[in-house]
Design a protein around this nucleic acid. Sequence first.
DNA 1: TTAATTTACTTGCAAATTGCAAGTGAAATT
DNA 2: AATTTCACTTGCAATTTGCAAGTAAATTAA
Lengths: 140, 140
Amino acid sequence: MGSPAEPRRSDCPISFALEIFGDRWTLIVLRDLLLRSHNRYRELLECDEGIATNVLAERLKRLEHRKLITRKRDPADARQFIYLPTELAVDLVPMLVEMTAWGIRTSNNKAASGFLKRAETERDNLIAELQQKIRTAANL
Amino acid sequence: MGSPAEPRRSDCPISFALEIFGDRWTLIVLRDLLLRSHNRYRELLECDEGIATNVLAERLKRLEHRKLITRKRDPADARQFIYLPTELAVDLVPMLVEMTAWGIRTSNNKAASGFLKRAETERDNLIAELQQKIRTAANL
DNA sequence: TTAATTTACTTGCAAATTGCAAGTGAAATT
DNA sequence: AATTTCACTTGCAATTTGCAAGTAAATTAA
């Protein structure tokens, strides 16, 4: 058993990673889940970049299939679902921090230079802190 | 002056980065340029994942526009062009190392566990070494 | 010196993916 | 009981991708 599973394009780890999040939207969703605590469909839909409803729904399904997120009903409101990152997703934080640092440097983002400095001078603490926050929120 | 430039989707650094390499192919090309020393069109075309000729040509143009690579004629064979990463691309190595590490962990890639161990125990050395190799090859 | 080959693409077109607008059904609120 | 909210689904046009074939310039082979 197990999912139908598309064949891998190659056995390269980068290629493997890109099969999961190598598109214009998946990492935006993961950013919101991991770094902004957006855990509901509606919150994720309101991302700054303007994701379409069908694209969001499809990405959430893929991420659940790949076990990067879990989906459960909100006990307080049975219409809503709560999406939480798994440990597999929490493991992406170091990569997201590096991607963020590169983006800040490359786009000359003054507003984010505080983050950049921290990423450069105390990377490990920054990552541990972010991951701890996520694990606490998701009770992992 | 300056390129026509598409509008940014948001001012988030991750979003900015994804506008440059948030698709199924750009990071494959950068991987080959940075980590495999594939510097010619034909070499890049022969990547394991099987990129199409038109897609490769378009991605190379974009990367040159964004100043992640340079393109110059091979003095030894005027039919060929040599594509070299710029410092902007070399700066992506930390992110690529983290992506590789995640991919190895997540896909249980036994063959690459040596790389993973190095990434975990002496990350800074590994990155510096990779970057030095690239800079030397590209004489930056 | 002419013909064949190599290289780096471009072009045309079908198939897949994305974006947008509207619709649906279940649960909560009024 | 009616309206609203929520998490989607559906339909369709527009864009992007993948594949096959073609082209022009430079090199090599005959």
